[in-house]
Amino acid sequence: MGNNAMDGAKKMIGVAVAAPVKFVMGLPDAPLRLWQRLTGINGMAVFFLAPNMIVFGVFVLLPLFINVAYSMTGGAALFLDNRVFVGAEQYERLLSCENFADPNSCVEDGFWIAARNTLFFVIIQVSAMIAVSLITALILNRAIRGRSFWRSVFFFPVLLSPVVVGLIWKWILQRQGLLNYLLFQFGIEQQVWLIDRFWAFAAAILVSMWAHMGFYTLILLAGLQAIPRDLYEAAEMDGTGPNRTFWRITLPLLGPNLLVVIVLALIRAVQIFDEVYVLTGGGPGTATMYLTQYIYEVGFASALRNPGLASAASILMGGVLVILTLLQLLAGRRGEKKAERE
């Protein structure tokens, strides 16, 4: 009897709590039904996508259109309506080159120096980043001692602000920094790491890899853990060696994750700015000046600033990124189809 009373009370409380929730949840019901009746099932998709599309439109598409508009203007004013329409003049300025392989022959040499630096940076940094991230993920996927600790260690730099990353490494690499101190202690010749063109470039790659590889390692690790264990067991029973297992099982099945990592790493490398800007300031000379820094300086920081030119440069950079991403996605789909056929 006592239990029944208890159950009844619980039910009453449940109803009392659920009623307002049910009421609130039911509020959009009527207008949504009306919307569906008027627009059909596709209208519902539009309704649910609208918030996302509005955010995307306001924060991505609108700035993109404004940027395109800016790239066709000139003059000193900042507001678009006060600026002079110059058509494709800024693009012409950027693309005026006698020899594209020699930035000094270009009217806007800074743009081409930055483009060349970015190209080298992307090729080397992305390749190295993916190789190191993959090796790290493979190691962390094994049953090693302190696995969770090592995973945290590799992921920790991802949590740091790029400015902090840049400053930490600057303190290590500057003339009177930690690294030179250690070299001195061991009687090894000191280097002016950030003033030498080669070492500054190498430092930019090393620091950006250190800062970001944890993220890519994590994606690859997730991919590795999703590969069914029985495939490895079957391969082992067939006497397949570790190399063949890696090339024939691990790598193909890691393909989708690897594609994501390549696309993300590539986009991030093309956009490299903050940590390298803090670390080297684009120097020595212009050895580590990349496209984003060029755009920032031309648009905002330099005494010779030109917002129209900076906008045009950012549109060109965006175009290259879109092409690269599409090419990779295309390659990824071909790979998938090929795998399906096999």
Partner: peptide
């Protein structure tokens, strides 16, 4: 000291 002028690109003050 070349580090002062070479250590940055553009018009950055050092």
């Amino acid at each position: 000291n070349p580090e002062v002028w070479v250590s940055a690109s553009g018009t950055t003050y050092r």
